[in-house]
Design a protein around this nucleic acid. Structure first.
Lengths: 215, 215, 215, 215
DNA sequence: ACAGGCGGGACAACCCGTTAAT
DNA sequence: ATTAACGGGTTGTCCCGCCTGT
């Protein structure tokens, strides 16, 4: 489990992502995106000004505006980055056991456990962004595409694992996870932690296709 | 079912809540809270200025500041109001069948169906507010208390209905509902609609205590 | 001549238009327009910020933006005001001698003398604005309409005075006046002063309609 | 007349002055001045940033700042260039008929006709610059010297052509031309076109020195 | 008590001219 | 010679209190 955590951590952020020593050798665009992720996640999108982002990224407003032609575009890039990271986690889980859907399911639940246990005290950054951004904001499309992709990937996984109703099961699992993360924001940290047991029960008890397949 | 809808509707909003004809005969404080609810829900809290609220409430900033000594206090009152309305819905459901937990469960699911089907295109207003507000904001306490209350009420209801694991079932139901509503914001309207079937299946299949206990 | 000057002066600005004592009892919108006229004329439109205007108008940006929803709109109002004042000068000249075109011509030349001699060290404010503003700026239409109106009014006046070629003479007079004022900006103050003699000669020598009228 | 146009055109701009193919083989300083002339004339001086100039000149800001130590200095160079070009036009006209002032006058009016007819949709670039620049700007001196020179050259020309009042006639002609060009900016394109006829009439009718010369 | 305009300071996003580092 | 850095300045909006009249 320690290994698992280290793996996941290294995928997303190593230690303190705003540590000047970490940022110093990165190109400005990277620094800006890292700073955005951190500040947007901690404080939300609206309350964070471009100046604060530039400062946290060890640069200045002008450089920020050379790389992103507006704050809105930065927000889009920020959401795109988050989505790509989420996809990367999924890909890593899949590639680890390409021929064993059971293991992939287990690995995903372990990832969920990591997420609700150790990180993301403010829930899902993309869901939060969707809440803050107006419906017509271009970043919304990025978020919606990501969420739809996640659900479809779960469907495929449950189908590969010969679940009888892959769509239904995927929806259930997806909504439980989403609900757990939004509940973190609403004080339900304890409830979010219980979601892991729910998911394990659900995976164990949901009906499979045929006994033959199980063997 | 028509009656149900009418009931819920009348609890929350009658026709167009910002219709001047509706607001005119209400005291200013009520008008301001109604306007806040509408604007905050549609656009979020940060993007809506006090001036816009005052205008929609057919009054002016001065009056607003006489009733709420700051925008933050208005936000608290707004969340308190939303919580009270949610509680009222619950109470109404409970009082309709005080001695029949089965009927109460059914009624609650029907209410959920109404919510995800007909209204709240932007998910749960309180969850959205929690996302927008900083952790130290006083309104967060109101929201967290409300969400905890909801979960506990579900636990009690499941216990009354002799479910074997009332906490577990309540959590599951709660998270599914929360997940469904946050998914509305993330483009998962279709998925949110499927939550109703999930809930009905779950209620039907979750293990009850024993037939002996029912008698 | 003293009377003339006083008259013209009172039409446009009395003493120092930015004197706080003068501004104090005026409504904010008036103060802002007066401050705009003064600052825009002295420094041009681009170099003057809204903050400086608000300050000179003894108010602040917020009040300015309550009366004009953008700087561009303020510029339009400013140009409209200048045009109205120019029209008022013309009207006053006309109403003073409604039945004597000769006197009106003389009065107009006297006004020109006043303008190039005593005021407007930076030429015609509207022409300057036209130079500074992009062709698509809405204020440009105001300026062009004003200039066209001035030329047409001169044509009518020359026709009433029985000049043989009223259009030609009006154009000539108009262009000389315009040229004189733009030359002020280009160091040709001395040349501008000579325009008065040119105009008087031109009016005296341009051919009239009938010999009888000439006596 | 086609030859005339070609001549004048080749003096000032050949086809599209910002065509990369035209600029490519020029030294950077030339490219920058050409780009400045085009952009400053089309949009004015204030709205055009150094970055845009560098880009249009197929170079970068750093190179620009190696050739001109500030934007203000570039503006001075720009105005100096415009003045030199104007002088070159005048010299060419003069050198074409060094001993025939009548021809020179005619040629100059033809040039004026070309200017107000075919080019300079935004009037005189130097006059526009004078309007935009503060009185203390060093480029103003360049502009004023140029305009004064133009007037003096006209005086000399009228004296050489034996006009009775060369100063007066020169002023008149000068102001008409200036007025025509500023009027282009103010919507008076039609009026500007009529200035050519005025000038021809004026030259034909203004009194000459001795009857002997005329015969 | 309500209505409304006015005032004020802070801060948002965005862009400028200019210089330094690489 | 390109990219980054920098400080200051732009327009525009925020929340909030004052100060009139009803």
């Amino acid at each position: 489990m320690t290994a698992k955590l280290a793996t996941a951590k290294s995928l997303i952020d190593a230690a303190n992502p705003l540590d000047p020593a970490m940022l110093a050798h990165l190109p400005p665009r990277e620094r800006i995106l890292i700073a955005s992720r951190e500040l947007f996640y901690q404080q939300g999108i609206h309350p964070v000004g471009v100046e604060a982002i530039a400062e946290a990224a060890l640069t200045n407003k002008m450089t920020l505006y050379r790389h992103f032609k507006s704050k809105d575009e930065l927000i889009v890039a920020h959401c795109t980055q988050l989505a790509a990271e989420g996809d990367a986690v999924w890909d890593r889980i899949n590639e680890a056991s390409p021929n064993d859907p059971e293991k992939r399911l287990t690995a995903w639940v372990n990832h969920v456990e990591d997420v609700v246990t150790n990180r993301f005290e403010r829930g899902c950054a993309l869901a939060n962004a969707a809440v803050e951004l107006q419906p017509h904001h271009p970043a919304r499309a990025v978020i919606e595409a990501y969420k739809a992709r996640k659900r479809d990937q779960l469907v495929k996984l449950f189908r590969a694992a010969h679940y009888k109703k892959p769509e239904m099961t995927a929806d259930e699992v997806f909504l439980l996870f989403e609900g757990a993360r939004i509940s973190i924001q609403c004080g339900g940290k304890q409830m979010a932690l219980r979601v892991v047991k729910m998911l394990r029960d659900l995976l164990a008890n949901a009906p499979r296709k045929t006994p033959a397949d199980k063997r």
